[in-house]
Design a protein around this nucleic acid. Structure first.
Lengths: 208, 208
DNA sequence: GTCTATATAAGGATAGAC
DNA sequence: GTCTATCCTTATATAGAC
């Protein structure tokens, strides 16, 4: 078989299918844990066909990860972009990020793989073109929330407070004080917002 | 050649050398990124010799990681165990953890690999026998710091505030507001302690 | 305890037909 | 654009000599 491409049909369809279907594999097992044969199997192609669309495994991986990041990044930036006092934007962002981390486990794992990547080129590419814009937005919000603090550190702390909880999700159930409702994104978002609000409100109280 | 073992000599020496020397490899490249050949090469043995000491690659990896964790865990628990008011113990712990994360990059990476592990048995083993004791200590401290809060969530937040900053260490330099001194463990520890102190002090102020 | 040699499988990548 | 067939490399693991 091999459904022949009708002339004029967008040529990108297969390529995007590969990107979409390979992402969960890379999320689960990482770059070295996934073979070109594995990718070919989920897409329903032979290994050789992948090399028509991508020069090598490295390129396929990089494109698949970047593709996922670009989609999610838009969602997250939207949460930060709207109007409202800084507190409202923070709450909206923390809630949205928590929901995404809870729902979209593959995305969370891709973030973790990128942070562990030892290929400098690959990591820098993703950091610059994918993380950066989002971080800029969080950074700006942080400096609005408290102009007296190091906005870079505060921004990283906000992200870390949310993301780390979900990174440890699988091991949390063996730890003391664990209760299932802690996995719910609203519960975590509330915990994080309260922590930050009290912390920054304390500064206002002193300064104002 | 092959230096013959004298009877009575502790048999464990080679085994422990393998554990020590393979850990940095696994820290850098993860389970799938390291071959038995790689391990053999750094130890100065042939591949086959490894199978005298370990039944398979899985066992070698598990033992190597557990070995590293046990060592570090003792150091961290010591920081928490001493006397002093809760604040002092928190500051000591945060400073010590930050210093360890900054110094011992391999250990930080091993933590990240464990969090990404999809082998449930392996992850549960490490979580139960290695993370758990440390978490218990942080959990207890958290409930002393603020009895009105969810100690489980607070403990995780304390750990996340420190660890996440170092996880993102490699990509941070492309983000706005970055300055080199932020990588210094004392600077981060101070940031984290101030954040927590203000947050929990705010509660005291309201409650007391 | 460690070696050499090897079985056996899985990996990335290419050539050439269709 | 995708297939079949194949090359070459690397991987885990074992057998048996020393």
């Amino acid at each position: 078989m091999g459904n022949q491409m009708i002339k004029g049909t967008p040529k990108r369809k297969t390529r995007e299918e590969i990107l979409e279907l390979s992402a969960p594999l890379f999320a689960q097992h990482g770059y070295y844990g996934v073979s070109m044969r594995d990718v070919a199997a989920v897409v329903g192609l032979t290994q050789a066909a992948l090399y028509y669309h991508f020069s090598d495994k490295d390129q396929l991986y990089l494109d698949a990860v970047a593709y996922q990041f670009r989609e999610r990044e838009l969602t997250l930036k939207d949460l930060l972009a709207g109007n409202g006092v800084p507190w409202e934007r923070l709450e909206r962002f923390v809630a949205g990020l928590a929901r995404m981390m809870a729902t979209d486990k593959d995305f969370l794992r891709l973030i973790q793989w990128v942070l562990l990547d030892t290929d400098e080129t690959r990591q820098n590419t993703l950091a610059k073109y994918v993380f950066r814009d989002l971080f800029v937005a969080v950074h700006d919000l942080a400096s609005e929330l408290d102009p007296h603090q190091d906005a870079h550190l505060l921004a990283m702390s906000i992200l870390g407070l949310v993301i780390f909880h979900f990174q440890t999700g699988a091991t949390r159930k063996f730890m003391p004080g664990h209760r299932p409702h802690q996995h719910r994104p609203e519960v975590l978002a509330r915990h994080v917002c309260e922590l930050l609000k009290r912390s920054l409100a304390a500064v206002d109280g002193e300064a104002g």
